[in-house]
Structure formats: structure tokens, C-alpha cells
Computed example of a mutant assay.
Amino acid sequence: MHTITVSHPNGKYPILIGEGLLAQAGDLLVRAGFQGRCAVVTNPTVGRHYADPLLTGLQTAGLDPVRIDIPDGEPYKTLDTVAQLYRNLVEAGLDRRSPILALGGGVLGDTAGFAAATYLRGVPLVQIPTTLLAMVDSSVGGKTGVDLPQGKNLVGAFKQPEMVLVDPAVLATLPAAEFRAGMAEVIKHGIIDAPALFESLEAGRYDQTWMLAEAIQVKVRVVQEDPFEQGRRAVLNLGHTFGHAFERLSDYTIRHGEAVAMGTVCAARLAVRLDLCPPDTADRITRLLARTGLPTEPPPYAPDEVLAAMATDKKRRGRQLRFVLPRGIGDVDVFADIPEAEVKAVLGEG
């Protein structure tokens, strides 16, 4: 088992990486001082594979778990879903020391995490990500939230988990398209702050557990430096200003990782147009994403539509959009005052 410790202003928590951790969750919670009632929040897709082993382990450890299912998918990452979850938690008798275990991908972790941040003004949270994307990105760092019709993640809270349990064995049932979507975030982390990870992915020589740990370490380094997204943490949004707009315009039929892949290529091409990075850097990024099976050309939305969708992006400052752009592999920064014509030109390159 590999352990990564995350420090934050109110304490620290472990990210545990190892096969078989799902069944050990009960023992780990008891060792952390938890007892009695707890809630496993999952969805039917994940639940049919992994809820029973988790519940059995919790019961064997002496805990009293209840399973709560919420609908699967981004369209249900809403305040309505959270409101129903509150009602379920009240009916289940959870008190302020009763942990919520989020068993699922990024959408579920964000939604259950927001409920944990706000139910009874905050209850303990354990993240158990079951997708590659959630393992390397959304389960780490304490950001939780839901969408509004106007855009993604416009309502949320920072909620640090008690622990994150990453069991690579659960990836065995992850559909290939979802695994590829998660690889977009792994590659993104390599571009941000892990040249060795990026180069290993280029060469096709890496161990899965090593890859997970390296990608997670990038997120950990950034969020420890900037736990509340006041500065450096914005670099984790590489590809997201474009990507979130693509997702919204598709009515969330484009997977998040696919949108990030297309958005990352757009960001790299924009950086080349602005003379911030050499063309070879953009070419390497595009080749690796394409070889992973991810889309690299922007979807055929009119540039004006994409810009309008960007207008509610939560990363903006006032009316000013901000873009995370690469200077090289392992070197990115945040830029504003980008001429609209340059953004439109990149969108037209596809």
C-alpha cells in the first residue's frame, strides 16, 4: 500500500493507494476513530459491482452502514439531487460524527461531498473513487459542488475528506471510454508539473500504480500550496476553460475527460499562437492524447457560441476570462487579456 499525506489549513489526511482497499475500508475507519452509523452514497452503476463488498467490510468492522443511491451522470449533479440526499440522510439517522462514504466517480464524489459539507453544517467525508478521473483529480483537494443550468460547479464548498481510498482493482470494470477519459487528466497533470510522467506515457512504459501515484502527487503539490484556489491552484484547470464550454454546449453528452482533452489541445495551440510555447510542445501534447484514443479537435460549435458558454466560467475575474496555457511540458501558467480573435482562431483550427 502506498500512502500520500495531504496537509491543509485544518489538518491533514491520507490518500491510500493499493489493491484490496475497498474491503479494508471498515477497519481503516475504525482505526481512525469512527463507529456506529455511516452512509455509503453510490449510484446503481457502481453499486452493483462494489457496494456489497464495501458494506460487508463496514459491517464486519462493527459499523452500521446504510446504502443511499443517487442517479448516475452529470445531468443529476444538481441541487435537487442534493436535497433528496439530505432527506435520505435524515431518514437514516446520521449525526455529526457519522461519515459519508462517496463510492463512485467524479460526479458522485462532488455531489456527495457537497452534501457532506453542508448536512448538519458538515459531517465527515471519505472519498472512494471508482474511476481513473476521480482517482487522480476530483477526489483530492477538497473541492465539492454541483451544477446550475448556467454552468458547471457554480455552487460548491471546500470539504477536506478524512481519507481517500484508491483501489486500482475497481478499474477492472471501468468501461474503456471512461478509462480513456481519465487518462486526459493524467496527461494534463504531466503537462502541469510531471515531465517524467508525460515522457513515460509517451514511451508507453509505466506501471499503473506508479502512474496513479505520480498523477495524484501533482494534484497534492498544487493544492497544498493553494488550498482555497486563490492563486497557483488555477493551473489545475488546464484545458477546462475550453472544455467546460464544450461540455455545456453538448448538454453534457461529451465526457468531461474528452472535453478536457480537446480543451488542452486548444490551450496548447493558443499558447503557440501567442508565442508562449514552441509548436513542438503542442504537437507532443496532441500526439499523446490522440494515441490514447482521445479527441483532439474541437467540436463543431460556432466560436461565438463557445465564447458565450465561457461567460459563466467560474475561473473568470469579472468579465475577464483566464486561460491556463503551457510554456512547455511541466511548465504552465495562467493568462488573462487574451485577444478574443486569437481564441476564435484556435476554435476554427478544427
Results as ranks from 00 to 15, higher is better:
residue 78 T to G: 12
residue 78 T to D: 06
residue 79 L to V: 14
residue 79 L to H: 13
residue 80 D to Q: 15
residue 80 D to G: 13
residue 81 T to S: 14
residue 84 Q to V: 09
residue 84 Q to W: 13
residue 84 Q to D: 15
residue 84 Q to R: 15
residue 85 L to I: 01
residue 85 L to K: 13
residue 85 L to F: 04
residue 86 Y to H: 15
residue 86 Y to G: 12
residue 87 R to L: 15
residue 87 R to W: 06
residue 88 N to M: 15
residue 88 N to E: 15
residue 88 N to I: 00
residue 89 L to T: 05
residue 89 L to F: 03
residue 90 V to T: 13
residue 91 E to K: 14
residue 91 E to Y: 03
residue 91 E to N: 13
residue 92 A to H: 10
residue 92 A to E: 08
residue 92 A to W: 11
residue 94 L to D: 13
residue 95 D to C: 04
residue 96 R to V: 01
residue 96 R to Y: 10
residue 96 R to A: 12
residue 96 R to W: 09
residue 97 R to G: 11
residue 98 S to D: 07
residue 99 P to I: 01
residue 99 P to F: 01
residue 100 I to Y: 02
residue 100 I to Q: 12
residue 101 L to T: 09
residue 101 L to A: 08
residue 103 L to M: 08
residue 104 G to K: 03
residue 104 G to R: 06
residue 105 G to Q: 09
residue 108 L to P: 13
residue 108 L to T: 06
residue 110 D to G: 05
residue 111 T to S: 09
residue 111 T to M: 05
residue 112 A to D: 05
residue 112 A to V: 02
residue 113 G to L: 01
residue 115 A to F: 03
residue 116 A to G: 01
residue 118 T to N: 03
residue 118 T to G: 00
residue 118 T to F: 00
residue 119 Y to M: 06
residue 119 Y to Q: 06
residue 119 Y to S: 03
residue 121 R to N: 07
residue 121 R to P: 01
residue 121 R to T: 01
residue 122 G to R: 07
residue 123 V to S: 11
residue 124 P to A: 09
residue 124 P to C: 05
residue 126 V to Q: 02
residue 126 V to Y: 03
residue 127 Q to D: 05
residue 128 I to G: 04
residue 129 P to Y: 04
residue 129 P to L: 07
residue 130 T to V: 05
residue 131 T to S: 15
residue 134 A to L: 14
residue 135 M to Q: 14
residue 137 D to G: 03
residue 138 S to Q: 10
residue 139 S to M: 04
residue 140 V to H: 12
residue 140 V to E: 02
residue 140 V to N: 08
residue 141 G to E: 00
residue 141 G to F: 06
residue 141 G to H: 04
residue 141 G to Q: 01
residue 144 T to G: 13
residue 144 T to Q: 11
residue 144 T to Y: 06
residue 144 T to D: 12
residue 145 G to A: 07
residue 145 G to Y: 03
residue 145 G to F: 00
residue 145 G to D: 11
residue 150 Q to R: 07
residue 150 Q to I: 00
residue 152 K to R: 10
residue 153 N to D: 07
residue 155 V to D: 05
residue 156 G to M: 07
residue 157 A to E: 09
residue 157 A to C: 10
residue 158 F to S: 04
residue 158 F to W: 09
residue 158 F to R: 10
residue 158 F to I: 02
residue 159 K to D: 07
residue 160 Q to I: 01
residue 161 P to V: 02
residue 161 P to W: 03
residue 162 E to H: 14
residue 162 E to M: 08
residue 162 E to I: 01
residue 163 M to Q: 11
residue 163 M to R: 11
